[in-house]
Amino acid sequence: MHRDHELHTRRKGRNFGLLAVLLAFIVLIFGLTVVKIQTGGFAEAFDHVSRPAIVPQDAVPEVSE
């Protein structure tokens, strides 16, 4: 058996710190995604198409035939 060099010990600590930061970021993104899906936020895609659901009724021109 051999002892790890002090440099390896410090790197291991930094690697665990980076792992914690990355896991926190992944959990944050996953949580935001779950909340968006549950609340129905951004259900209609941003595809530059007129959405009748958000147009006020008094702003819609009447069609006469």
Rank of each mutant, 00 (worst) to 15 (best):
M1P: 01
M1L: 04
M1Y: 05
H2D: 13
H2M: 04
R3F: 07
R3I: 09
R3N: 11
D4Y: 02
E6R: 03
H8W: 03
H8V: 10
T9W: 07
T9I: 14
R10D: 03
R10N: 06
R10T: 03
R10Q: 13
R11E: 15
R11Y: 13
R11Q: 12
R11V: 14
K12A: 15
K12M: 07
G13E: 15
R14K: 10
R14A: 13
N15F: 12
N15A: 12
F16K: 05
G17M: 04
G17I: 06
G17V: 05
G17L: 05
L18A: 06
L18V: 01
A20E: 08
A20V: 10
A20D: 08
V21P: 00
V21K: 09
V21N: 03
L22P: 01
L22Q: 04
L22M: 11
L22S: 08
L22I: 12
L23S: 14
L23G: 07
L23H: 00
L23I: 04
L23E: 00
F25N: 05
F25P: 01
F25R: 00
I26R: 02
I26N: 11
V27E: 06
V27M: 10
L28F: 11
L28E: 03
I29Q: 05
I29V: 11
F30M: 06
F30K: 00
F30L: 09
G31A: 08
G31I: 00
L32N: 06
L32M: 13
L32W: 02
T33V: 09
T33I: 07
T33Y: 00
T33G: 01
V34W: 00
V34T: 15
V34E: 00
V35E: 02
V35W: 03
K36G: 04
K36D: 08
K36Q: 15
I37K: 00
I37G: 01
I37F: 03
T39V: 12
T39F: 02
T39H: 00
T39Q: 01
G40L: 02
G40S: 00
G40V: 10
G41T: 12
G41C: 08
G41P: 03
F42G: 11
F42N: 15
F42M: 12
F42W: 14
F42S: 14
A43N: 13
A43R: 11
A43H: 07
A43W: 00
A43P: 04
E44C: 01
A45S: 13
A45F: 15
A45Y: 08
D47A: 11
H48A: 14
H48W: 12
H48V: 08
H48M: 14
V49W: 01
V49R: 06
S50A: 14
S50H: 04
R51W: 02
R51S: 07
P52W: 01
P52V: 03
A53K: 04
I54Q: 05
I54V: 15
P56C: 05
P56N: 03
Q57K: 14
Q57S: 09
D58Q: 12
A59D: 13
A59T: 14
A59V: 13
A59E: 10
V60C: 08
P61K: 08
P61N: 07
E62Q: 12
E62K: 13
E62C: 07
V63C: 10
V63N: 09
E65Q: 08
E65T: 04
E65A: 07
